[in-house]
Simulated scan of single mutants.
Amino acid sequence: MTPDRSERDGVRARFLAVGASAAADALDEFGLTDQGVHPGLSALSGERPAGWAFTVAGAMTPYEGTGDPAKMRACAEIGAGEVSVWAGNGEGVCYFGELIALGMAGRGSVGALVDGGVRDLRQLRAHGFPVFGRYRSPVQSIGRWRVTGAQRPVRVRGATTRWVTVRPGDFVLADEDGALIVPGPRIDRVLARAEELTRAEDGVREAILGGMSLQECLDAFGHV
């Protein structure tokens, strides 16, 4: 059963509370060891993107005309609590900018993960829209790069493997430590384990601040 809006908001808030590092440790424990996104994709605007993946695929290809209808359709289909994930091996051109962000935000989107170019950073930052991107570029995509489809599996550059596959309904979590992808069927278990790990880390932190040595904490709590 698809969770309702309040349930999705609750899951997002819980993921943001534990953060990407605890989620990454939980993924490792479940044998999902290659879910980290390449560190070259970093924060460009806003705070931390966190939400269900809405995938957008594209390709570098010359074309005639003054716009990309497929891109506009994708922008109109995203839903509340979703993070758009842009993929397509583009180089040097912008996939994503202010007006796309505003259109998606108006439909409830909560961020973007762009394995490509972003522009309009001053405006994006003024709006506070969360974007992780691979590079910045003022060069528009029209006539150079176009959307080839949406809501199908895409690949973004990985941290420990060349590519990470992102499927519609996976969970995108990005913060100061980087970005990762939680496979949709594992969201509940990964989140619950990440919360357990976070509570354990909180205990170690409190003990250290209370005067215990790191070795004493490791002896008492084990590795965290």
Rank of each mutant, 00 (worst) to 15 (best):
Pro3Gln: 05
Val114Cys: 02
Val204Leu: 07
Gly51Tyr: 02
Met60Thr: 13
Gly31Phe: 14
Ile187Cys: 08
Val11Ala: 07
Arg122Ile: 14
Thr61Val: 13
Asp202Ala: 13
Arg186Pro: 06
Thr66Arg: 11
Phe54Ser: 00
Leu191Ser: 03
Gly58Ser: 11
Gly106Ser: 12
Gly31Thr: 04
Ala220Met: 10
Thr161Lys: 12
Arg157Trp: 03
Asp28Arg: 14
Gly117Ile: 01
Ala13Thr: 06
Thr61Trp: 09
Ala192Tyr: 10
Asp25Lys: 15
Leu218Asn: 09
Arg167Ile: 06
Pro138Met: 08
Lys71Ser: 09
Val18Arg: 01
Asp177Cys: 08
Gly10Glu: 13
Ala26Ser: 11
Arg12Trp: 11
Leu209Asp: 07
Ala70Arg: 14
Gly65Ala: 07
Ala200Arg: 15
Glu195Arg: 02
Thr61Ile: 12
Tyr135Gly: 00
Gln140Met: 09
Leu16Asp: 07
Arg205Trp: 12
Phe132Arg: 02
Ala200Asp: 08
Gly128Leu: 12
Ser21His: 11
Glu196Gly: 05
Gly169Tyr: 06
Val118Ala: 01
Arg157Pro: 02
Gly79Tyr: 01
Gly51Val: 03
Leu102Tyr: 08
Pro183Phe: 03
Gly111Arg: 03
Ala112Asp: 11
Gly158Cys: 02
Ala20Glu: 10
Val182Arg: 00
Ala17Val: 12
Gln35Glu: 12
Glu196Lys: 13
Ala23Gly: 01
Ala105Ser: 14
